[in-house]
Design a protein around this nucleic acid. Structure first.
Length: 595
RNA sequence: GGACUCGUAGCAUAACGGAUAGUGCACCUGACUACGGAUCAGGAGGUUGCAGGUUCGAAUCCUGCCGGGUUCACCA
């Protein structure tokens, strides 16, 4: 790594020139911006206190030192306080020679002993998956791959919220009005089928509330006192008491939902090493809560509810167990965390959960610490922003929730019609065409979502998301297909294998900039891993594809008459294609051979 | 109201405290009788919400204000 050498030599330069030891954080190097001449730029302002000279003079002295002490430094120039260093072409060519055939370029060797456990998806079983879940799933999956690529062992886990009052509501509605129907009998996807009963409960419950209000009850009070809600609560108690009738129905309905979820996960390309169910973890949570009460960390109120006092931490009191003894969200999350620690002894626990739950995770960590769990500090909440529509937030009440399956269907149809309009592969079989359309539509969707910084609230514009031009997944997929087309032609004509590098031929500007971009790839993946940000990989892939398209446009590859140059360009193109494929794979996006 | 968070061209977005704030969409003008035009080149479009402060240097850090969002449930 040239950067490491440079930092080291900069230290000795300062020592030599100004007789001072300098701490590494004062050394600022960055990629030279494209409008200036050079490859790497050193910011010299931080050194002025030591040199007691002008920025230009300081930069000049350091530049001279670097030329003498680093053999790959070709020259330098100074603009204001910026020392722009030009690296010799032979350095780039050597890099190219060493790496262009490396199948695992950009992958980092495994180094960790204990795994990173990353939880994502975490659906409730009362509703089908929607756009918000899509961001969660894509992020969780991609971050897992990126961390894995960075050299750590990763365990992807899903925690299905399969118990609780909301499930009881769907169950109750089905018992009352389902008339024994099933996904099979209605020809509905299982999660959609169950979701309808949840909605039905809500509708009927609202009617009851209205009735109570009409009879003079206060609205808030009425919302808590409907017969339906009481019946649902009763079901929950029976469930926690393991009433066999209730459990049987619960199993049946959840089974339907899982069948539905599996179809959606499979289509999205999302998978897990392990799936937890809250129904299996909440009891451990209750046990932890009871231990906490015994230890005096938690306290019980007169009505039997259990609380954690966080006023010393500037927060409020937090309920951890209901008065009727049933558990809440926090209860089971305590249990799940413990279970995960026991099972994996993770170096990090990552929870991919929306930022609306920031408070929940602050509290979760605090309570675990109070309970004496030192590993609580390894919990990291990967808090991502909400997905909004151009009209604003998705509202189930207004029917603006974007369903995951519907969205994928819509994208698929767009990919299909766009491809058919362009009509470039009439020789594809139906199966091949189908695979291509899914690849392109998922590529568009995934890229659209992952290119945005996870922390930020994003706007999902359905119209723009299915645009295949510009900064999009299909643009990158197209670039890959284009390169593959060249490589096919090259191999048909038996050319390209003879890529002996001539170090004395000057490279074209576009060739050098491509090599430099390729050189950055490994550090981009590390940065993405540290920041848990697929967006960095997405933006890199776009830049690389764009750079290649410019190169492709400006310079002949197969038509180049100089065989050495021609073969070098073929190899360079192959290197780009492989890197694009690798970067896109980290995002869960496949790239086609033809499109 | 308290806590947290976000305001960058019409829209969507990028920028370890560094240079003239990048990019895409939309809009206008062009491109090799094509190694794949799902491409490429050019144009227009910005007081980075406002006002102070810290710094050699601020979209970025601090303070205040304005505006949006989330959260403060015996929901998850």
């Amino acid at each position: 790594m040239i950067e490491i050498i440079l930092i080291d030599r900069l230290k000795s330069a300062i020592k030599f020139l100004y007789k001072e030891d300098i701490s590494e954080n004062l050394i600022q190097i960055q990629k030279t911006r494209s409008e200036f001449d050079g490859d790497i730029t050193v910011v010299v302002f931080p050194f002025l206190k030591l040199s007691r000279k002008s920025p230009e003079q300081t930069a000049d002295e350091i530049g001279k030192y670097l030329i003498e002490n680093i053999d790959v430094v070709e020259s330098y120039n100074i603009i204001k306080g910026f020392l722009n260093i030009v690296i010799k072409q032979k350095f780039w060519l050597k890099f190219f020679e060493d790496n262009h055939n490396n199948e695992s370029y950009g992958k980092h060797n495994s180094s960790s002993v204990s795994p990173v456990v990353i939880e994502y998806s975490s659906p409730n079983t009362n509703k089908p998956l929607h756009l918000g879940h899509i961001r969660n799933n894509l992020l969780g999956w991609s971050v897992s791959e990126i961390i894995l690529n960075g050299g750590k062992e990763v365990k992807k886990v899903n925690l299905i919220n399969d118990r609780g009052i909301h499930i009881c509501k769907s169950m109750l509605a089905w018992m009352k009005w389902g008339e024994g129907s099933s996904p099979e009998s209605t020809n509905l996807k299982g999660d959609k089928f169950v979701g309808e009963y949840y909605v039905l409960f809500d509708k009927k419950n609202k009617e009851q509330i209205a009735e109570l209000v009409a009879n003079g009850m206060d609205n808030d009070e009425a919302a808590k006192k409907t017969d339906l809600l009481n019946e649902a609560k009763d079901l929950l108690i029976r469930w926690e008491n393991e009433d066999s009738e209730v459990r049987e129905l619960w199993n049946k309905m959840n089974g339907w939902v899982y069948d539905g979820f599996d179809i959606t996960y499979d289509r999205m390309g999302i998978d897990f090493h392990k799936v937890y169910h809250e129904s299996e973890t909440y009891i451990l949570g209750k046990k932890l809560v009871n231990d906490g009460v015994i230890n005096g960390v938690l306290f019980k109120k007169d009505d039997g509810s259990v609380w954690c006092n966080l006023t010393d931490e500037g927060l409020d009191e937090k309920l951890v167990l209901r008065a009727d003894g049933t558990s809440v969200y926090m209860t089971q999350d305590l249990g799940t965390a413990q279970l995960r620690f026991d099972e994996f002894k993770p170096s990090e626990f990552i929870y991919v959960v929306g930022n609306e739950q920031n408070y929940h995770f602050d509290v979760l960590k605090l309570i675990l610490k109070k309970l004496g769990k030192s590993w609580a500090e390894h919990i990291y909440h990967l808090s991502y922003g909400m997905v909004e529509l151009p009209e604003g937030k998705m509202k189930s009440r207004e029917g603006t929730v974007v369903d995951a399956d519907d969205l994928m269907d819509e994208m698929y149809n767009t990919a299909k019609s766009t491809s058919e309009e362009l009509g470039k592969f009439n020789d594809f079989s139906d199966q091949e065409a189908h695979e291509l359309y899914s690849m392109l539509s998922l590529g568009a969707l995934k890229y659209f979502i992952l290119k945005v910084d996870p922390k930020k609230t994003m706007t999902f514009n359905p119209k723009e998301s299915i645009d295949f031009n510009g900064n999009t997944g299909p643009f990158i997929q197209y670039t890959h297909a284009r390169i593959k087309s060249i490589l096919r032609k090259a191999s048909e004509n038996n050319i390209g294998s003879n890529s002996k590098l001539d170090y004395n031929t000057a490279l074209e500007t576009k060739e050098t900039s491509l090599i430099k971009l390729l050189y950055e790839y490994p550090s981009v993946t590390i940065q993405a891993s540290e920041n848990m940000s697929p967006a960095l990989v997405a933006n890199y892939a776009y830049e690389l594809a764009k750079e290649f398209n410019q190169f492709y446009h400006d310079i002949s590859i197969l038509k180049e008459s100089d065989e050495g140059k021609r073969d070098f360009r073929i190899s360079l193109s192959a290197f780009v294609a492989r890197t694009l494929k690798s970067a896109m794979a980290l995002l869960g996006i496949q790239v086609p051979e033809r499109m």
